[in-house]
Design a protein around this nucleic acid. Structure first.
Length: 432
DNA sequence: TACCATGATTTAAC
DNA sequence: GTTAAATCATGGTA
């Protein structure tokens, strides 16, 4: 009622005399008057306004009847126009300034991000590009296929939820807008509501809904960020390799100590044997090389241990070969049964040299290792291949790290396919 | 909880 | 693209 009262007040200054009102509106002469009786016209309008003011105090039937009477009143259109104009010029003009809002930069950022992540916009594999980029950053795109597909699946889920919610919001917005428009149109028959105002109201509703939409976009972005960070964090998750895998890698490393650079084929073979990826093999060798070089002394015992292991394998291989020759003198040596057939690789002799008490890259060999050596010598001396093997030692020069900290034999193959290497053996890198 | 071992990542050089 | 080197981050253990 306050609004109405204000309008009434403002209308107090409106003179309908001379068929003109504030704002230059021309009105027809009121019914029953000849257009010269100004007091009479004022009284007429006052009556109408009074009726409007008191309409809510009456019963519904009375009010309906009154409403109908007012609607049919010949002054109604003119009064309605005046009220609309005044309303336009007062309250709404203040709000008018806010109408032409520039696009919200935050909303634009959110939109761009959702588009980049493949959540918004046309479906293109559920953000596989983003996942692929993340996977590529790990240096093992192919190895992350499980995480990759998991990421995609989760992103697709987010995308679906986002679109469902967006649809709901749009539907709700349209429904509400239509409802309000109908209501306002209906009310515009009794209240001073211009089409412009209805339009404005629709704009307000849309703005309200778009703020809800922004919240949806924001939470979707957050969900994507969380998913992304989890996915990326997962790449850093570390599991120690199995003991067996570490042994296999160490065996290869120490048996190729002069040139511990496995070829692609060797890496693949090692990866298969260790149930790890080729990238992990590369990582492992990279770490091993640098850590070995940094602290040879620390790794000496380990080196000796694996050298001893290798020697035992050699002994077994040699014994098997002798046995085989004894059984079938015409059969050539067909190779050892060891997994990598490492025993005859050149580095074994390097290891043996050190085990024999010679300097091994400056490190000292412990007494326990010496006893191992004695045992091994005994074992090996019982094989026919031992002397040949030792004679073969002349083929090798000292390997390992040079004065510059590089691997001495890093540019040449550390080993060649030995006579004992079988078809399943792993060859060392020949490209370095 | 501190410390060490170790797998993964990053950066720069080649 | 591979590697060395540095660094990060986590797992395992005393």
């Amino acid at each position: 009622m306050d609004d109405q009262a204000r309008i009434m007040q403002s209308l107090g200054g409106v003179s309908l005399g001379g068929h003109s009102v504030q704002g230059g509106m021309a009105l027809p002469p009121p019914h029953g008057h000849d257009g010269t009786d100004g007091d009479g016209r004022k009284q007429d309008i006052g009556d109408i306004l009074h009726q409007i003011m008191t309409i809510t105090d009456q019963s519904l039937d009375e009010a309906q009847a009154k409403k109908h009477g007012l609607n049919c009143h010949r002054m109604k259109p003119a009064l309605f126009s005046v009220l609309c104009e005044i309303k336009e010029k007062t309250g709404l003009s203040i709000r008018g300034a806010q109408e032409e809002d520039p696009p919200d930069p935050q909303l634009m950022r959110l939109d761009n991000m959702l588009l980049a992540e493949g959540v918004a916009g046309p479906e293109k594999g559920g953000g596989s590009a983003a996942a692929a980029a993340a996977a590529a950053a790990s240096g093992a795109a192919g190895d992350n296929s499980i995480e990759h597909s998991d990421y995609r699946a989760k992103l697709t889920q987010i995308r679906q939820i986002y679109h469902t919610e967006l649809e709901k919001y749009e539907q709700a917005c349209n429904e509400f807008t239509t409802h309000v428009m109908n209501l306002l149109r209906e009310q515009s028959r009794t209240r001073p509501i211009s089409p412009k105002e209805i339009e404005r109201m629709v704009g307000i509703i849309h703005r309200k809904f778009s703020s809800i939409q922004m919240q949806l976009k924001q939470s979707t972005c957050e969900a994507v960020m969380i998913l992304r960070s989890r996915f990326l964090d997962a790449r850093r998750k570390r599991r120690n390799f199995s003991k067996q895998a570490t042994e296999i890698l160490n065996e290869y490393f120490y048996s190729h100590l002069s040139n511990p650079y496995p070829s692609e084929e060797a890496k693949e073979e090692l990866a298969k044997k260790c149930s790890i990826t080729v990238s992990q093999v590369s990582n492992w060798f990279g770490n091993k090389r640098i850590r070995y070089k940094k602290n040879i002394g620390k790794f000496q015992e380990e080196a000796n241990l694996y050298a001893a292991k290798t020697a035992v394998n050699a002994a077994h291989a040699a014994a098997a070969a002798v046995q085989s020759q004894a059984n079938s003198p015409t059969t050539p040596n067909s190779g050892s049964s060891g997994s990598f057939n490492l025993p005859n690789s050149g580095d074994m002799f390097l290891s043996m040299q050190s085990l024999n008490g010679d300097s091994y890259q400056g490190a000292q060999v412990g007494a326990n290792v010496q006893s191992q050596v004695d045992t091994l010598r005994h074992v090996i001396s019982q094989t026919a291949g031992y002397n040949d093997a030792l004679r073969g030692n002349t083929m090798y020069s000292p390997h390992g790290l040079n004065a510059n900290g590089g691997w001495q034999d890093a540019t040449t193959p550390s080993s060649v396919i030995s006579p004992t290497e079988g078809p399943g053996s792993v060859h060392s890198d020949t490209s370095n």
